[in-house]
Design a binder for these strands. Structure first.
Ligand SMILES: Nc1ncnc2c1ncn2[C@@H]1O[C@H](COP(=O)(O)OP(=O)(O)OP(=O)(O)O)[C@@H](O)[C@H]1O
Length: 694
DNA sequence: GGCCGAAGTCTTTTT
DNA sequence: GACTTCGGCC
């Protein structure tokens, strides 16, 4: 294996001996690369069997890529090696060993929306509490990250700021999940760490199996995840972690840099290796990033240098409104494309998903192909969640959230009032709603209601029988037909419900995705499929497509790199976000976020802000004042670059339908930059702009 | 009681 | 733009 291209520190890290090792290094210094090479090195040169290795990554996508690279390096598929996110690795453990802690193997996973749904239903029966479902969910999640289930809490325990009401809600929530045979995201970790790994036989077996544990993006680990690795590092502590404290950006999810220091405490013999050469970015980009991050106080000073040249200065552009910003960036993109840059090596990064809108609109209009990562996840769309609810009920009829979701969708005569009754009676009898409906006489309902309920139950039972022999795809088709779901939307489409068409298209796409999954995993059951897709993140489903520019949040861009990066909305109240300006700690996390965004760029970086966003006055971010002026050029918007063959339109005057007399000051392919009478500029697509010659 | 359209509310980041 | 709540209609 060729380690010659590595620098001495990187080489030392790859070949480090046994015991705990902490690789601390800045962005683009090759941490992920070192981790990948180390896995290959262990297998190929140290003869460590792949089954003794456990590697934790931040996304499933990263796991897939690292695995592929390792396979290329060692020449075979290290099938027995475990690699994935904390959530997927825990899921895997629970699938295999869950019966040891009494977990029903058909459990389903509740996503955030499902969890909120459970909380909302609890709140319906208890009007006295004035906390929002989100606040409650945040509380529950926080408790779970500390490994605390409600049975470890007393109802009367004072919880500051929660009016003494929150613990009973947490208790009900957890009971509901248990009756539903469902685990939320946090449960995957809590059950694994607090219950499964509390079984000494299981713990020591896994501990002995995974002799080598490697962790990428270690700076974003939280308490329960730390506990997880600690519990598996008793027998041998060959722990190899890589991270950068300046890139902790998941504080809202419990990530905390102190785990870096905790490791030094808990494993006093830890070896610390620093990587200081950055291989990714030009000098200007790196200097900008370093200056910015040096404004944070809660960090260790570190060195990062590059032997790439300075490159071009970073550009800063200002626009009036977000739409102008989108046009501005669009024309930059076209310009770069002309210079030979590929769209797939460019990215537009932003703080919030909603910021993608103006880009979508403008790109559609002027025909720039793009891919958006994130926003409303495919599997979170209403129509997809509905269908998934039917499928989940096939596997696990106890699932109350799914039942509630589709018992009357499409409408079949079971109103929300009836559903409420069903849910509260079921809870009263301590049964899952489905059990309650199937097993008890339903004296409290009218005969018409009972009739509707029985038809529904029969339908589900029939499908459940079939589900034993059907493939996931066949079952999906059966559900779509027999539930009347497909017909419902087809009728809506005829009634000119314009959203129906979208939904039908999404259903078709969903079918294709099930088909594809089935082909790739012919031996998987419906249950496997359902559990796996629950853990897919935005970036996992991202497919970097030829000739399409990538749009994503800064959070999603973690660990990635692009030739050209545009950071949009570098504005006050956006980055730093208005809701994260309260404390110094919050502000520093926002600064780290901006640092992560900047360090994604290899060759070209363009920062952009707009004076207004929506109807809010935002203006340039306070972080911009922390950047070295020597690295930045600020475009003042005019000077159309001297073109050798100037477009004949440039300089001509027209009458615009809305803006009146305008002058063309620049032309870029089919887009013209117009100067208006009031001195402002606008981009228009020449073909469709309402212009008249004068 | 059940269904549907209309109006009003809210939107940080994510496994 | 998506989700909840409300009021009218069958
Ligand atoms: N020794 C080296 N020689 C040449 N290129 C290298 C070397 N080490 C790393 N690189 C390149 O530098 C880039 C950054 O590497 P990598 O993604 O591993 O860094 P990282 O430290 O994990 O970054 P981040 O902190 O942003 O996640 C990659 O394109 C990688 O191929």
């Amino acid at each position: 294996m060729d380690l010659e291209q590595l620098n001495p520190q990187q080489k030392a890290a790859v070949k480090v001996g046994s015991g705990p090792t902490l690789v601390l290094a800045g962005a683009g210094s090759g941490k992920t690369r070192v981790l990948t090479l180390r896995i290959a090195y262990l297998i190929k040169h140290q003869n460590i069997p792949p089954r003794s290795i456990l590697a934790m990554t931040f996304t499933n996508k990263a796991a897939g890529e690292i695995k592929k690279r390792v396979e290329n390096l060692i020449g075979f598929n290290p099938g027995a090696l475990w690699m994935g996110t904390f959530h997927s690795v825990c899921l895997r453990m629970l699938r295999i060993y869950g019966d040891q802690i009494g977990l029903d193997r058909n459990f389903v996973i509740y996503d955030e929306k499902d969890s909120l749904g459970v909380i909302k239903k609890i709140l319906k029966n208890d009007q006295s509490i004035n906390l929002t479902p989100r606040e409650i969910r945040k509380y529950i999640s926080r408790k779970k990250r500390l490994g605390i289930f409600p049975d470890q809490l007393e109802d009367s325990e004072p919880e500051w700021g929660y009016q003494g009401k929150i613990i009973p809600i947490y208790r009900k929530y957890q009971q509901n999940l248990q009756l539903s045979n469902a685990l939320d995201f946090d449960d995957l970790l809590v059950y694994t760490v607090e219950q499964l790994l509390a079984e000494e036989t299981v713990r020591s077996m896994l501990d002995r199996r995974f002799q080598y544990i490697l962790i990428d993006e270690y700076q974003d680990i939280n308490d329960i995840q730390y506990k997880f690795i600690k519990k598996l590092s008793q027998d041998k502590n060959n722990l190899f972690v890589v991270g950068d404290e300046d890139q902790t950006i998941y504080g809202f999810r419990g990530s905390n840099v102190y785990h870096i220091f905790k490791m030094e405490e808990d494993f006093p013999q830890v070896k610390i290796i620093k990587l200081e050469q950055n291989y990714r970015s030009t000098g200007n980009i790196l200097k900008l990033a370093s200056m910015l991050i040096s404004n944070n106080h809660l960090r260790k000073e570190k060195i990062l240098w590059t032997d790439r040249d300075w490159g071009e200065p970073v550009r800063l552009i200002s626009s009036e409104k977000e739409r102008d910003e989108a046009y501005r960036i669009a024309s930059e993109i076209l310009e770069l494309k002309n210079q030979g840059y590929n769209l797939e090596n460019m990215a537009i990064l932003y703080r919030t998903n909603a910021q993608s809108r103006p880009f979508e609109e403008v790109f559609l209009k002027i025909g720039i192909p793009y891919v958006i990562v994130g926003g409303l996840k495919f599997f979170e769309r209403k129509e997809i969640k509905d269908i998934l609810a039917y499928l989940k009920l096939m596997v696990n009829p106890q699932d109350s959230e799914s039942l509630a979701r589709i018992i009357n969708f499409p409408p079949r005569g079971i109103s929300s009032a009836t559903l409420q009754k069903i849910l509260s009676s079921a809870a009263f009898h301590n049964l899952a709603p489905f059990q309650y409906l199937s097993e008890l006489t339903l004296a409290e309902f009218t005969s018409r209601q009972i009739n509707s309920i029985h038809q529904f139950l029969e339908f589900i039972s029939l499908l459940r029988e079939k589900s034993q022999n059907y493939t996931p795809l066949a079952l999906l088709e059966e559900v779509l037909e027999k539930s009347g779901y497909l017909n419902y939307w087809k009728n809506r489409e005829k009634m000119n419900d314009y959203s129906a068409q979208d939904r039908l298209e999404n259903i078709e796409e969903f079918k294709r995705s099930v088909e594809e999954y089935q082909q790739q995993n012919p031996d998987h059951l419906l249950l496997d499929y359902l559990q796996n897709i629950s853990l897919l993140s935005d970036i996992d489903t991202w497919d970097q497509q030829q000739s399409k520019i990538n749009l994503m949040t800064i959070h999603s861009a973690k660990g990635l790199e692009f030739d050209v990066v545009f950071i949009s909305g570098v504005e006050n109240e956006i980055i730093p976000h208005i809701r994260s300006m309260g404390s110094d700690a919050d502000l520093e996390e926002e600064r780290r976020l901006f640092y992560v965004a900047i360090t994604r760029a290899k060759s070209k970086l363009l920062l952009s802000y707009s004076q207004y966003r929506g109807n809010r006055l935002t203006g340039p971010s306070e972080f911009l004042s922390e950047l070295p002026e020597s690295c930045i050029t600020t475009d003042q918007f005019q000077q159309p670059e001297p073109v050798t063959q100037q477009d004949p339109l440039i300089g001509k005057w027209f009458k615009h339908k809305v803006w009146g007399k305008v002058q063309v000051v620049d032309v870029d392919k089919d887009i013209a930059l117009l100067k208006l009478a009031d001195g402002t500029h606008k981009y228009v697509k020449i073909e469709i702009a309402p212009l008249e010659t004068i």
